[in-house]
Simulated assay, not measured.
Amino acid sequence: MTPADLSLTVQHAVRRAVDDGALRVDVLPRVKVERARPGGTGDYASNIALSLARPSGRSALDVAGVLRERLQGAPGILAVDITGPGFLNFTLRRDAGGDLVRAILAAGAAGAAGAAGAAGAAGAAGPPYGHGSALAGTVVRFAEVTESRALVVTDVVIRLLRSQGADAGFGGDQRIHVLGGDYLPGTLGVDAARWSLLRAAPQDRVLDGPPLLVQHERNSLFRVRYAHARVRRLLVNGAQLGLRPSYETDIHAPELLGVLGDHPVVLLSAARHRAPDRVARHLEATADALLAFQHTVLPLGDEKPSAAHRSRLALAEAAGTVLAGGLSLLGISAPDQI
């Protein structure tokens, strides 16, 4: 991980804290990181918490604690320590990208094995990547709803809560308040109809339906589903060249590795805040990062297949796994081809 990669990772953590409502500040266009000074710990340090303390109305130590929670376990970071009045100190990992990619692919393989062996060894399969037990012991019951958008949103919120270990379902008096919007699977198809309702935040109007049927980069649903289809095609084309995905050497792809590493935090935040739109926005960011990265995956021209190509293919497959899992939580299909 380079200093630029680390700066971007810290900036992502600030943005997540703002999205979660943990901090009320403007996200800075750049976060300064520098080599840890004598007396500090780790490899690099940042004074970002001190810079955000006054505008957030909180102490620098409080801000540092909020950011540390969102930085622990991030790709490339082994440890985050708070020193002095609120400096963040970072100890970097080696081959962190490989650890992340292998974890995503292992979770995807376990999930597939569980689905295939549901009658037998499904219990041995691990949870999909990003699912966890942070909300274990939490019981949430929602009131029965009839309004179409509220019904779709509540269904996905229940899925998100369960993905984080909560006991969630209908049968209580909690309600999700959203602006109205018709569910039109007969006109738009299930995928576009659900995206139109879920991509908009609860306080916003639903997306206009017809543009979601157009295969164009301006269509956010098309970009996400197309990115997944591109991954599947890359895997097919790679196999034809004798390439199998295997992360063997570090790949410089901070944007893509960053959004993949963010996925578990995004799912937990979306569950806590009853906000499926956060998942949809994260899938857009993942798709955009993958589509920018895809051109480097397979050999070009006379280039011979190498460990770098196998590693890039593994990273692309990991991105496809995240896209498929996120779309599944939203009740939207992830096509192998478009």
Rank of each mutant, 00 (worst) to 15 (best):
D5I: 03
D5L: 01
V14G: 04
R15K: 09
R16T: 03
R16G: 01
V18D: 03
A22K: 05
A22G: 00
R24A: 08
D26P: 00
D26F: 00
L28G: 01
R30H: 07
V33M: 05
E34R: 08
R35Y: 02
R37P: 00
S46P: 01
A49R: 08
L50I: 05
S51Y: 03
S51P: 00
A53E: 02
R54C: 02
R58I: 04
D62L: 06
V63K: 08
L67K: 05
L71D: 04
A79E: 13
V80G: 06
V80C: 06
D81E: 14
T91L: 08
T91C: 01
T91I: 03
R94V: 09
G98F: 00
D99T: 01
V101C: 01
R102G: 00
L105I: 02
L105W: 02
A107I: 02
A107G: 02
A107M: 02
A118I: 10
A118E: 11
G120R: 06
G123Y: 12
G123T: 11
A124V: 07
G126Y: 07
A134Q: 05
V140S: 01
E144R: 05
T146D: 00
R149P: 00
A150F: 01
I158L: 03
L161E: 10
L161H: 04
R162G: 02
S163Q: 06
G165N: 09
G169L: 04
I176H: 04
H177V: 11
L179P: 01
V190L: 13
V190F: 06
R194V: 12
W195K: 13
D204K: 11
D208H: 14
L213Y: 13
H216M: 11
R218N: 15
R223D: 09
V224Y: 12
V224I: 15
Y226H: 15
A227L: 14
A229T: 11
V231I: 14
V231Y: 13
A239S: 12
L241E: 14
L243A: 07
Y247K: 12
D250R: 08
H252M: 09
A253W: 11
E255T: 15
E255I: 10
G258S: 13
G258F: 13
G258T: 12
V259S: 12
V259Q: 14
V259C: 13
G261Y: 12
D262T: 10
V266Q: 12
A271V: 11
R274H: 14
A275I: 05
V279I: 14
A280D: 08
R281C: 06
L283A: 12
L291M: 15
T296V: 14
T296M: 15
G301N: 09
K304S: 05
S311R: 05
L313N: 03
A314L: 04
L315T: 05
A316R: 03
T321S: 12
G325H: 11
L329R: 06
G331T: 09
Q337P: 00
